[in-house]
Simulated assay, not measured.
Amino acid sequence: MNANTPIQTRVADHPINDAFLGRWSPRAFSDATITEQELHGLLEAARWAPSAFNAQPWRFVYTLRGDQAWDGILGALMPFNRTWAEKASALVILASDTKFTAPGKTEASDNGSHAFDAGAAWAYLALQAHMAGWAAHAMAGFDKAAMATAISLPEHHVLHAAIAIGKPGNIADLPEALQAREVPSPRHPVTATAVHGAFK
């Protein structure tokens, strides 16, 4: 663990794998670089996420720091997010295809679960990143029109998130306003989000 990474304070109410408690979304990144092969290892995990009809509607567009595409993708982030995401090793944009051709059909139709399935792919990527010693922080703060232009988003595709990936860095390098927020966030108890039988 990086000396500047907060000590793990999360405690599960029920037995789970430690990876779920250890994964969080930091903003402080080091100047480490990531190779395309290493990034593909994280995307490989996303590849195995479940999806309706095995349609696999998620689409990732990535750039490594210093790439030709970096400035366009970084520039589409909201200014607040640019202040810290610019130090990431890679930026990954998550989109999904809203159309698919169902088994036995010849024409594409609407895929009602494209966003749900893309979320599963993000979760797989995030957990693999954590287990491989990387940190992944997904954000919704970006200009959708600018990002669509930056990545040449195809027709029938929608944007979901921009993901900053890097090695944990020095919290002191963050703007002062963000330093206090650089801790793993808590979660509601299961009893607040799950009910037996029906909503009351």
Rank of each mutant, 00 (worst) to 15 (best):
A28P: 00
F29Q: 12
S30V: 00
T35Q: 11
E38A: 11
H40S: 15
G41Q: 05
L43A: 09
L43C: 07
E44R: 12
R47C: 08
P50W: 14
F53A: 05
F53C: 01
A55K: 05
A55E: 08
Q56C: 06
Q56L: 07
P57C: 12
P57W: 09
W58N: 03
R59P: 01
R59T: 07
F60Y: 10
T63R: 09
L64I: 06
L64A: 05
L64M: 04
D67S: 14
D67C: 03
Q68H: 07
I73R: 07
I73M: 13
L77A: 10
L77R: 03
M78Q: 09
M78Y: 10
M78N: 14
F80G: 02
W84H: 05
W84T: 02
K87S: 07
A90E: 07
L91A: 14
V92R: 06
V92T: 06
L94N: 08
A95H: 02
A95W: 00
T98R: 12
T98F: 06
K99G: 01
T101P: 02
T101R: 14
P103M: 13
P103S: 10
K105I: 12
K105G: 01
K105Y: 15
K105F: 15
K105D: 13
T106P: 01
E107T: 15
A108T: 08
S109I: 15
S109W: 13
G112V: 00
S113A: 15
F116S: 11
D117R: 09
D117Y: 13
A118M: 14
A120V: 01
A121N: 09
W122H: 04
A123Q: 13
Y124A: 10
L125A: 08
A126Y: 10
A126V: 01
A126P: 00
A126F: 03
A129L: 05
A129N: 06
M131T: 03
M131G: 02
A132F: 11
A132D: 15
A132E: 15
A132T: 05
G133R: 07
G133Q: 13
W134V: 01
H137F: 06
A138E: 04
M139T: 02
M139A: 03
